[in-house]
Nucleic acid binder design. Structure first.
Length: 277
DNA sequence: CGCCAGGCTTCTA
DNA sequence: TAGAAGCATGGC
């Protein structure tokens, strides 16, 4: 039962993809630039492109998005080449994982622009999701390029040129100098991209940890959401709670090939009260 | 007022 | 080298 993708009246329509719920995917703390509209549709900006999309029956409709635009960008962004059914089958030999995956099966891992992911998760540290969104919104409005529907995420170059004082309007607190250090490293091409994409996960994490304000958690989020590394397993406060409560601190063996995806299922499960039952 | 938020840096022993 | 304090800001 493969999903079909067609273009109708200038919009791309995805039909028969059971593993893609908009709320689960766009509002689960992996990306911070999506919001739901009054009519139930979602809109956001990624890669400098504005998109509005909605669910209609068994279909997902990407408004005003020709198939070429879908193929060129959104297909990768929404990780459409991955079979999430296969992932869930793979981890379901563990009964507890099976339950957690069932609860989060609408989640897909968004393949975000790496600089945006790095910057966003630097901002996320010791912070809460509503405020993270606010800071990122001010960052885009203040320094991003105007586009349909709002502003793109600002380039690393444009942020690297600023001082911490100039970032004061963001009200991001102590994170300002971290953002600038990350922007400078990104703009100057100092990260070993090949290592981040294909190196072993520990080396890749260490490469990002050279950045001021980047530790294991932010590095793993950047690898997972910005470099497509599903072998990264970010451990935040929620995951630590979930891991100790549910798995005695150790992820079941079957989850390891999909650690990053399982992490997102777990995050959702924990955050929506799964640990309290 | 206190505590916490998708943590990390810096100081201290 | 481990552990605690400090860190900006805002919501509750």
């Amino acid at each position: 039962m493969a999903a079909t993708v067609t273009e109708v009246n200038g919009s791309t329509i995805i039909t028969g993809e059971p593993y893609f719920e908009l709320a689960d995917t766009l509002d689960c703390g992996q990306a911070f630039r999506w919001s739901q509209n009054e009519d139930g549709s979602w809109s956001g900006i990624a890669g400098g492109r504005y998109l509005r999309l909605r669910k209609s029956g068994d279909s997902l409709i990407l408004d005003n998005t020709p198939l070429s635009e879908y193929e060129n960008f959104w297909k990768t962004y929404f990780d459409m080449d991955r079979d999430y059914g296969e992932v869930i089958t793979g981890i379901s030999s563990d009964p507890l994982l099976k339950r957690i995956a069932e609860a989060g099966k609408g989640i897909r891992i968004l393949r975000q622009e790496s600089w945006e992911a790095l910057c966003s998760f630097i901002i996320s540290q010791n912070n809460n999701i509503p405020r993270i969104k606010g800071i990122i919104a001010r960052l885009c409005e203040g320094y991003g390029e105007s586009c349909e529907g709002g502003f793109g995420f600002p380039s690393a170059e444009s942020i690297a040129a600023l001082s911490p004082e100039e970032l004061a309007p963001l009200r991001c607190g102590f994170r300002a100098r971290y953002i600038i250090d990350a922007a400078e490293r990104t703009a100057s091409g100092s990260y070993d991209t090949e290592l981040l994409l294909n190196g072993d996960i520990d080396s890749a994490r260490a490469e990002l940890e050279k950045t001021l304000g980047v530790g294991p958690k932010v590095a793993d989020c950047t690898l997972l959401f910005g470099y497509g590394r599903i072998d990264a397993f970010p451990r935040d406060v929620w995951i630590k709670r979930a891991m100790s409560t549910l798995f005695d601190g150790k992820l079941p063996e079957v989850a390891l090939p999909y650690a990053g995806i399982v992490q997102q299922y777990l995050f959702q499960f924990a955050r929506t009260g799964g640990l309290e039952l």
